[in-house]
Design a protein around this nucleic acid. Structure first.
Lengths: 251, 251
DNA sequence: CCATCTTTGTGCACGCGTTCACAAAGACAT
DNA sequence: ATGTCTTTGTGAACGCGTGCACAAAGATGG
């Protein structure tokens, strides 16, 4: 699924475009891999290939951070790892709570990617009394009655919601009221939050539906022969896969 | 965020912008809820509020599908549900395989959102012999040796990868070779696939890092008097995601 | 049948993001 | 030093997506 964010288009974080921010973790991962192999420097071309992006885009992205490269040589891997980490705020500890310890919540609690980058699962919270006290990923599940206290005691500012959709909004409200200002939402619900609170959404069902759309399109296009690199332009002879009314008119 | 897509800028699906396609599932969900409450018609304003988007954007999105509204009245809920479902290809059955039945794979297998919209978990596949035969979500796990046969026997075109990152690319290669043309990747790896294969990426770690970035920015702006008039007043646009910045992945 | 009211559909302008293409900057050899 | 070679950093152009604002279309009432 995809992602959506609650964000004001005007407030460009600090000159760093949102699209660039979204790619920084990608670069960081590639750089970390290089660092582990003790590679000292890397060119924009190589790094771009490793991250799966265009090299011009990568250079422009880095230019927003500053001039950290050396012309004729490339970028110092360790230095760049540090700069990106700092920019992303990963040099500090981020306590995170996960609310809703079902299958998905448990999976996230066990997910190694959290701890590896400054994120620490501070608490697991569930509304089911039967869950309270049970160990998941080595952490005891706490009851949601104590949500506010848990948030404030641990100084949590990031919350992950993996509850059923019906209670997601109310959990969200309580998290926000308790001081959480960033939310990662896995429930298939549109959350409404006050200004100043960021919400990112991960929706599995939506991701699949987008794939299905393209899949259907591919299936319906099978008269196109052997993959011509570019299909001219507006296909006027296009038809709905199941023979229905095409209905699409380009603006 | 979580999504990356293999974007072919030239092959614009069929006049329907990618951004619109990504929102259709959102509208569909809101419409389904209305349908269950037997609401006959809905205005663009109401539906937009329910989906958390701007009403002008919603109308423009629908205009790509055709003129399905009635001026002065709004949109017929049932009819719109059908049209969007058809456009997304949800009127047909999509068998899906999940490869890598760890915590996350099991969570996905149990996820109700799959079956609810034409997606059917056709098989669960894992490389660990100890997993083979075990029931997860009522489905017997099969060994990865049989991957190719499973794909072809079930006519699977959509694969979900929830393996450790180390083996994700090779699993991907086998899926593609066996005929899969759409992949939903949960492994923190940049997959390389041939043209014609769509990849969408969901990366939990990246989502958190993006949140951390904004969180840090918020914290750092608290006592800063510098420049930004923008930071002071948040926009008055209320709730709801007003933008969607997908992280674009390469093919 | 005409007037009014509601809501859609869209032309237009604007801004963000991507990409190209190249000058500037440094490394390196002679 | 000077020239050559590599690679960065960025100016500029372009295309996509968003949102405004309004005319067209239909409903509704008199």
């Amino acid at each position: 699924m995809a992602t959506g964010r609650t964000h004001r288009p005007a407030t460009r974080s600090r000159g760093i475009p949102e699209a660039t921010v979204a790619r920084l973790p990608l670069y960081l991962r590639a750089l970390t891999a290089l660092s582990e192999r003790s590679v000292p420097t890397v060119s924009s071309e190589e790094l771009a290939a490793a991250a799966g992006v265009n090299s011009a885009k990568l250079r422009k992205d880095f230019s927003y951070l500053g001039s950290y490269g050396t012309r004729g040589v490339g970028y110092d891997v360790e230095y760049l790892v540090y700069q990106i980490s700092r920019e992303l705020g990963l040099t500090q500890d981020w306590p995170v709570v996960i609310v809703g310890i079902g299958n998905l919540g448990a999976a996230l609690a066990n997910y190694g990617g959290f701890a590896s980058r400054g994120f620490r699962v501070a608490a697991l919270i569930d509304a089911d009394p039967a869950m309270t006290g049970r160990q998941v990923a080595g952490i005891a599940v706490q009851h949601s009655d104590d949500l506010e206290k848990i948030i404030s005691d641990n100084g949590v500012s990031i919350g992950v919601i993996t509850t059923p959709p019906g209670v997601a909004q109310q959990v969200c409200d309580r998290l926000v009221a308790a001081g959480v200002t960033s939310i990662l939402n896995f429930a298939p619900t549109v959350l409404s939050v006050p200004d100043g609170v960021d919400v990112r959404k991960v929706d599995l069902s939506i991701e699949l539906q987008i794939l299905a759309f393209h899949e259907q399109r591919k299936a319906g296009e099978e008269h196109e022969g052997t993959a011509p690199p570019v299909a001219a332009h507006q296909d006027s002879s296009e038809q709905g896969p199941d023979g229905d009314v095409p209905a699409v008119m380009p603006a």
